Amino acid sequence: MQARSRSIHLSVHIHKNPAAMAERAAHILAAACEEAVAERGVFKIALSGGQTPIPLFRLLAAHDWADRLPWDKITFFWVDERCVGPDHPESNYGLARREMLSHLPVTHFFRMRGELDPVKAATMYEEQIRADFNIGPNEIPRFDFMLLGVGDDGHTGSIFPNSPALLERKRLVIDQYVPERKADRLTLTLPVLNNSRCCMFLVTGKEKHAVLSKTLNLLDEPTLPAQFVRPAVGDLIWVVDEAAATGE
């Protein structure tokens, strides 16, 4: 077997506004999907929540884009979830359903069950991933695409600064209480993110400039969760607006 390179294939795309970002992100996602379907017959993507991906979700659900992707060959997972029901306003699954999935012929998706006991929900989701990827107890799934965001504190997914999740190396999915948010969360772990073929961050707003600058400095010793997202063999893509890039 060929040894895996530790080099990072990093690219940064700066656009005037979130609408232009969404267009760029859609083209990147579509290219990754085309390659995955051609090589493996399926495209496996994990989505994040928050406000930043909404323009992308809406674009993909719009008429111009809805016919471009083979939705029957795409399987959706989630990077993280709030421990609420699917109809709750804060549900990451609910957001994706309202803004995109309900408008498309999507048939393959596996949501994190935030309405269940967090420990049980994390275990169930890990079991679901292992079954879908057909991997053993010591293997890490290789997603085709991770759609990520970053908070102004440097968190990504539901991996927050100083979280035990930063040290997790065996589990695929963990539950944790996040003191900063006074809430329980479910999240994929760093080994899963870093085994992906592509991790794409979407970042908007001048308040993200400081954390963006720190995270993009690959020579800096990682301290923030987003800095630890460095795919071992894959692409690391940042699509940002001018406000985040310049701080103005």
Rank of each mutant, 00 (worst) to 15 (best):
H103K: 14
D144E: 06
K208T: 02
A96H: 00
Q2I: 11
H88P: 08
L101K: 01
G151W: 09
C199K: 07
L47I: 02
D64R: 15
V178C: 10
L147F: 09
Y125R: 11
H27M: 11
V79G: 15
M146E: 10
A38L: 12
H63G: 01
D152C: 08
G136V: 00
E23V: 14
V84C: 06
L236W: 02
D220C: 14
A96S: 11
Q2H: 11
L69T: 05
K214G: 06
E115S: 08
T52N: 10
N194S: 14
G85Y: 02
V37F: 08
R40Y: 06
V119S: 05
E90H: 13
E35P: 01
P164Q: 11
E99L: 00
D184W: 13
E90W: 04
D64N: 15
N194M: 09
T204S: 12
F145S: 09
G157D: 07
R58Y: 02
I74S: 04
A226N: 07
G157E: 02
G205V: 01
F228W: 04
A19W: 05
H15E: 14
R111C: 09
V37D: 06
G94K: 06
I8Y: 03
R6F: 13
V79E: 13
K44G: 00
N162P: 00
E81V: 13
L56N: 04
C33P: 03
G151C: 03
T156K: 07
S7W: 08
P141E: 05
A66M: 04
V192N: 12
D80A: 07
M200H: 08
V211M: 07
D64S: 15
R6S: 14
R185I: 02
N17E: 10
F110H: 15
C198N: 06
S91L: 06
D64G: 12
N162T: 08
L69H: 01
M200D: 07
D67K: 15
F77K: 10
P191D: 01
Y125Q: 13
F43S: 08
P89T: 04
Q2N: 08
V12Y: 00
R97G: 00
T75Q: 12
E127T: 15
R181L: 14
L190E: 03
F133D: 03
L147G: 04
S213E: 07
F201I: 04
P161C: 13
K16D: 14
N17K: 07
L47G: 07
N17A: 05
P89R: 05
R171C: 09
A183C: 03
R111V: 10
L95R: 07
V79Q: 13
E81G: 11
M100F: 04
I129P: 02
E90R: 13
F145D: 09
C83N: 05
R97Y: 12
T156Y: 11
I159C: 08
E81M: 12
E39A: 13
F109N: 14
E90D: 15
A20T: 04
L188C: 03
C83W: 05
I14S: 11
E90I: 10
N217Q: 12
N92E: 12
T156M: 08
N217L: 06
R98V: 13
P164H: 09
L104N: 10
P137S: 10
